[in-house]
Each structure stands twice: as structure tokens, then as C-alpha cells.
Nucleic acid binder design. Structure first.
Lengths: 329, 329
DNA sequence: CTGAAAGCGCTAACAC
DNA sequence: GTGTTAGCGCTTTCAG
């Protein structure tokens, strides 16, 4: 131990942590020893004794840290954590419920100060123990029904509803939705579609309201099938990034990209550069991450004045594909 | 403490860690107490005592956890870590040298078992102490000159050189490169351009070999300027994702996307769906992450047989934009 | 300004 | 099968 090198046990601690009350002489000797031995403080041991125990680490558990949306949100969380001296411990759930429950335990066992969490679909039973302990948790991206935890998410319901309205205004009467209802968040988007259709006095039919489309291939196949219909839809809304990708590909392959309107949920890098440009309902993952992290740190600081759920509006960005005219009027 | 609830101190440990030698009776009582009190093991305290100290956490320090490439790499690391019981602590350097040095200390102080690191440009002095301690570090994505650490990265040199050759084969003689040389990795790509030009017996001129293009706007402006030249290049290679985006935008705005050939370094989601499809030199961030993580864990297991640097080949994916013919031959 | 004693939560190494 | 003792690296508290 570095102490041996210097001469003191406790004094070293004071030096390393920049507490005052250390003679300049002693300070120098300790600092020298630190450099000499390449000493690095074990912050986990320190946190053990302190009553104000802090690991200076927060947890971030998302569906998949590898996707764009998650990555941007992750970065925003880090940007809030950094100036506060915290690091971010991460993990992906792959929407697995069992896995999530396990991760939460693993995170707490590593003494993270709080967790930002995108809950997987299913019951949120596993959170009860954490809540009972008054552990700090902020939910992001998805709602968790019946769980009294603050949540920061986009208004997917209004987002999709507005997309329907946008298409209806452009004369479309036959509008398909390609999504799923596996998670509450996706269900909200689906519900937004239904609400939008009804508001525009359009029929919701099983042939067009597709709730089992989750992958790129699902979407590509669905668009192809839809066009084989006797009376194909004139507009399509996709519920998430990878299904948008599939729909774009299919429309392109069919040569229909200038004839069938398309609005995707979530933005994509090259969306403005497609022909036609891809109209999207965009979310702001940066903002979601920032707000969630700020809320978490405020709670950790004991300031719960701002602790409440936040629903962020989405933005419809018209770029062409969503403004192709339909037959209506 | 949960022990109070049961009856034993040490026995609880045995139960929680599934060591044997515990009477079924006692086991049950402990388990009950655990559930009752919502007890969660403090794994950091355990690691303190054990000689085989393991935090079951590895560090991942990248340029920016928010970008696509990093996110994919991150996920691959997690996928290797998960079955081995480890979690991933992350951070971004923003290519800041000072920040990186600080992060490395912070990571070690949190007792991570090893670190996977994309070194920022500049001298790698700050790694010396870690190396001296024989701490486990694997470098990714970028080379670190003069540092005896295993590295997993793409062969950017060959990737860009091959792109030049590809364009030359399609009749281009005036090929521009839009990149920078701030980091060794970017310099390698630049050098690959020069090598490719020379191999094709083409001139490398300051007007076309641009080494100060880092952002979207840099690239967009550069492409616009290049086309204002008396004798504009007939082909362009961009050195990284965001500059590719800028070049695509500029070409599109100029209406030149079918006339000027373009090859981007790094793939993009919608690249196949552009008109023309975007030809790219693609890397495999998943593979980089996986290999680096496997190497790290092998080292942690004391198996250094596979510890060596790996240069992964890139793949040129022709999709149209890189196959536009030039004037040559 | 400095140190000694005690203990954070847990587990090796021994007893019993 | 179980408990005891000691100690991981650090910090609190309190006495010099």
C-alpha cells in the first residue's frame, strides 16, 4: 500500500481525496509515493464505509444498446452524468423480461446509484423490490403500466395519429399501418393509428392494420403482399426504424416509391437523401436521455420537485414520401 | 443484515453464493429472509476480500458511444461479456486526450477487470502505468503507435486504396479524397488514398487530397467547392460516415449524383436505397467488438495464446454510386 | 495537522 | 453442516 511508502495510513486518504489539514511536506511525500507505485484508489472500498455511500455510477438498461435510438439516448445520459462525476454502466434486455429482472439485480449488486430503464413488455413485478427500497429509477422510452415510477418518453400515440391525419389531408383513404403491439409503447402507436383513422372517418380493416410486423423482412414482405391486393393501400405508415427500412426497400423494388405514400416512425440518417425524401415522425432520443438523466440525478440529490413523467411531442418532418397525393377528394 | 433474520452470518454467504454444505432447513430460512428483506448482495464488498478479486465488469471507452459504429461495437462486446457474467461500463472520449487519461483512472478505480479502448489521437503516455501493472487492455478501431497492446481494427489503408483502384478501373483519373489526418486511423485511410492514386499512376494534388474534412458541413462545402473548379473531379471518396452524408447531400443538391462517382467509408442503413445506391467500403464493427472482447476475456482467464493484434479486411460493396464511369480509356 | 481504533459487507481459512 | 476469526482498502470518529 502507498501508505507504507509514505509514512502515514490515514493521511494518505486525506491527500488523495484532497481534504485539507495536511502538512505540505507530508502531502508531497504521499503524492510522490502515489506516482511511484502507480497507486490507484479503490473507490468501491471507500464507498463501503461512507454513510453517504456513492458509487458514482449510474445504470442504463435499454432494449438494445446497439441501435441508433439507444446509442443517442446513451450518449445524452453520459453527457449529463459526466459533469456530475458519474460513469454509466450499460446493458441490453432484448425485450426479455427474465433477462431484465436479472440485470436489475446485477446492477444494484454493483451498487449503482440509480438506474435509467427501458422496461421490456410484460409485467413489472421485478421492480417492486427496488421501489420498496426507494431505489432511484427513471423509466425511458416505454410506459410501464401500474408502476409508480417517473417516465420520459415520446408521444407515439399522437405521433402516429398525426401521421394518419397528414396522409388523410393529402387525399389518402386507404392507409396501412405496419407495426406490432408487443410492448405498451408499440401498442400506443398502433392505437394512434386507429384513432387517426377514426378521426378521419376512415375504416380500420384487418387487411391494413397490421400488428405483427416487427422485422425488416416482415415489413418488406408485408408491403409486397399489400401491393398484390386487389385494392392496395395508397399510403403506408411504419411503426419503427427497421420496418421503415423494409418498407422503403420493398417500395423501391416494386418501383412504387413515387406512387405509394410512406411515413416512417423514427428518423434515419439518409432519409432526406432518398428519392423521394422520406417523411418521418421523429423522436428526440437525445432529449429523452437528457431529461431522464437530469431527473435521476435530481432525485439522487434529494430534489424530487421535478420528479414526474414527461411525454415529449414528436415531430412530423415532411420530405416528400408522405406528401404523395392520394385519390381522395 | 439478512443474517439477523436467519440465524447465521457465514452461512448466508454460502446460500447466496450457492456453495454447498448447507442444511436444507437453514437454506430455506436464509432464502426466505432474503426475499423478505429484499436483500441484494453487495458484490463490490465481496470482491474486496477475495484474492481472485473480480468485479465482473469490463470497461469500454470509445470516441463517442452515440455513433452507429460505436454502438454496434458496444453491443458486440456486451454479447461476449454477458455469458461470462460481466457487465460493461462505458464512456466517450470525444477524442480528447486529457479526458481519456482521466477516464482510464476512473475505470480502474472502479475495479473493472479490463478495458477495451479506442485511443484518441496523441501520445499514449497515460497508458504506461496501466501497462506496468500488467492491467488488461485491448485497443480497438485505432492504432496506438509505440504501445505494446493488442489491437483489433479495420484495414483502413487497404480499404481506401482499394476504393481508389475500383474507381480507376471505372475510368476515373481525377479522384478526390475528403478526410482528415487527426488520428492515426484517419491518417491510414488518407495514406491508402495516396497509395492507391500512385499505384494507378494518378497525380495526388492538394486540390483533391483534402485532409481537413471532418464534419458534415465540411464535406458538403468541399463537394460544392470541388464542383466549382475549372476541372472538377469525376469521383469522390469520403473518409467517414458523417462526411459521406455531407457529400451525398451536396451531390444531390447539385443534381450530380448520377455523374460524379462516390464511395463512402463505412456503411449506412439506407445506402442501398439511394438513387444511385451508395457504394461503400464497409467495416465490421460487430466483429471488431467481438474479437476484442474475446481477446480481453481470454487474457483475464490467463490465456494469452491468442493475444495479438488483428487487422480486419474491409469490404467494398458496389451499389451504383461507385460504378459510375469516368472519362478514362 | 495527524494518528489509532473501529467497522463498512463480505469471504478465506480454520476450527468445531 | 456451521460458526469464528481475521482482514480486503478505505473512511469515519475521536483523541491527541
Amino acid at each position: 500500500m502507498a501508505r507504507a511508502a509514505g509514512v502515514s495510513p490515514m493521511t494518505a486518504s486525506r491527500v488523495v481525496n484532497d481534504r485539507g489539514n495536511v502538512h505540505e511536506e507530508a502531502r508531497k511525500r504521499v503524492l510522490a509515493a502515489v506516482k511511484e507505485l502507480g497507486y490507484i484508489r479503490n473507490s468501491t472500498a471507500g464507498a463501503l464505509r461512507s454513510p453517504t455511500a456513492t458509487s458514482w455510477t449510474v445504470g442504463l438498461i435499454l432494449n438494445d444498446v446497439g441501435n441508433d435510438f439507444s446509442a443517442t439516448l446513451h450518449r445524452a445520459v453520459e453527457d449529463v452524468a459526466r459533469p456530475r462525476g458519474s460513469l454509466v454502466l450499460t446493458a441490453s434486455t432484448d425485450d426479455s423480461h427474465a433477462h431484465m429482472a436479472h440485470l436489475v439485480d446485477e446492477f444494484w449488486s454493483r451498487q449503482v446509484d440509480g438506474i435509467i430503464l427501458a422496461p421490456p413488455p410484460g409485467d413489472q413485478h421485478y421492480l417492486e423490490a427496488s421501489i420498496a427500497r426507494d431505489a432511484k429509477i427513471v423509466l425511458v422510452d416505454r410506459p410501464a403500466v401500474g408502476v409508480p415510477l417517473p417516465t420520459v418518453m415520446s408521444d407515439g400515440y399522437a405521433g402516429v395519429r398525426d401521421a394518419v391525419e397528414h396522409l388523410a389531408r393529402h387525399g389518402h383513404r386507404s392507409i396501412a399501418y405496419l407495426g406490432d403491439v408487443r410492448s405498451p409503447a408499440m401498442r400506443l402507436r398502433f392505437d394512434g393509428y386507429v384513432a387517426g383513422m377514426l378521426a378521419a372517418e376512415l375504416d380500420v380493416t384487418p387487411a391494413l392494420a397490421l400488428a405483427g410486423i416487427e422485422t425488416f423482412d416482415d415489413a418488406r414482405d408485408a408491403v409486397t403482399s399489400l401491393h398484390a391486393l386487389a385494392d392496395p393501400p395508397t399510403a403506408i405508415i411504419t411503426g419503427r426504424n427497421r420496418t421503415t427500412l423494409g418498407a422503403v426497400r420493398a417500395l423501391h423494388d416494386l418501383g412504387m416509391q413515387h406512387h405509394t405514400a410512406l411515413i416512417g416512425f423514427d428518423d434515419l440518417d439518409l432519409a432526406p437523401d432518398l428519392d423521394p425524401g422520406l417523411t418521418v415522425v421523429s423522436q428526440d432520443p437525445r432529449r429523452i436521455g437528457r431529461l431522464a438523466a437530469e431527473m435521476l440525478f435530481d432525485e439522487l440529490d434529494g430534489d424530487t420537485t421535478a420528479t414526474r413523467s414527461i411525454i415529449l411531442p414528436t415531430t412530423l418532418i415532411p420530405r416528400g414520401s408522405g406528401e404523395i397525393s392520394g385519390p381522395g377528394r
